[in-house]
Write a protein that binds this DNA or RNA. Structure first.
Lengths: 184, 184
DNA sequence: TAGATGTTTCAGAAAAAACTGAAACGACTG
DNA sequence: CAGTCGTTTCAGTTTTTTCTGAAACATCTA
């Protein structure tokens, strides 16, 4: 039912899953869908992966909440079929977007909240460190938002231009660090 | 011993840890070190976090394997003290580097290996998909390697130039896709 | 070398996460 | 409405991961 090639790919993503925050079955289901030209339904996955029906159901729900799978329907068939988007770039964008939402945004919120706190003297260093972290994250996410606006073609072109981009960076004027002093 | 502010930060990173592949104690220890102006020793952390000595020991080892903490020694004191690097950028670089090593590189290896396989007809689609994934990952990591070469100052300047970078991308010539045909 | 101080290891306990089967549910269909 | 087909939920079990305390180890010091 499943060629060695696909088997191996699927198992790899199952294992890999645990290094991310993803559980094995979710990883395997995603991998199976990714490699399948045809949409698959829950029972297909049960057969392919040998896990329980309910596990498949839960895992698909999880994948849907990540917007990583698409629901398809066949005319005259009540079952839900699933695929991954054809466009790999779309997949990457979704993945980054969702991870940002779940991993970065809550942290940013927390950091801002801690920063606001009227700080006792003993916390001066900690608060400075928190600010530093917040600023860095904002810089990175802000930049990411910019990149995300580009259409895929331009983005690919940009990524392909590693060397040229380096040159561009050379020309970038480095702004003096902002200090607390009011400099005139 | 631990102000509310720091307490909260530490707990947040403990929770957050699980969304990454990191366990709670590891996250908490890292957070505690991050906020501490002074290096801390294992027993300090036991006191601060209320976990067992051996847990702290294991977790510190884990953090060391990630190169996320630095060992310090005080003259005339046999104990190991730990800090996080002062430079946030260094932290980010390390983090990305290590995650790449653990999460991307093994996958890339596996993908290449599967791609080489003499493909049976039924695997044609799967293999095409694998190639697509491999190429995309290579593009992204290749680009990352370029960025990683920049000194921090230039990198920051570049990141701060979101808008300008967009314009730059506009000007980027979009190269025609490479095909198998030998074009003259 | 005996003792003091600090770190690491490891087998088992505790906690958390993943998974299952069975039952509930929902929505069409004759 | 009764039956069919498919999905979802959930209490309980299994598996995995994390954590602990005790013992082993290592190094310095009197």
């Amino acid at each position: 039912m499943l060629s060695d090639l696909r088997q191996e790919f699927i198992l790899h993503f199952g294992e890999m899953g645990s290094r991310w925050g993803i559980n094995r079955t979710v990883g395997q289901i995603y991998a199976a869908l990714f490699l399948s030209e045809e949409p698959l339904c829950a029972d297909d996955l049960v057969g392919l992966l040998g896990v329980s029906r309910s596990n498949v159901s839960m895992s698909l729900k999880e994948l849907q909440s990540w917007s990583l799978v698409q629901l398809k329907h066949r005319p005259g068939d009540r079952r839900d079929f699933f695929t991954t988007p054809d466009d790999m770039w779309q997949i990457v964008r979704t993945l980054v977007e969702e991870r940002k939402k779940r991993e970065i945004d809550p942290t940013l919120t927390k950091l801002r909240q801690l920063e606001m706190r009227p700080g006792s003297a003993e916390d001066a260093y900690a608060q400075a460190r928190i600010t530093e972290m917040r600023e860095l994250i904002e810089l990175l996410t802000g930049w990411y938002d910019q990149m995300n606006k580009l259409e895929t073609e331009r983005l690919v072109a940009l990524l392909n231009m590693g060397a040229k981009l380096q040159k561009f960076a050379q020309s970038a004027r480095i702004l003096p660090k902002r200090t607390n002093k009011t400099e005139n």
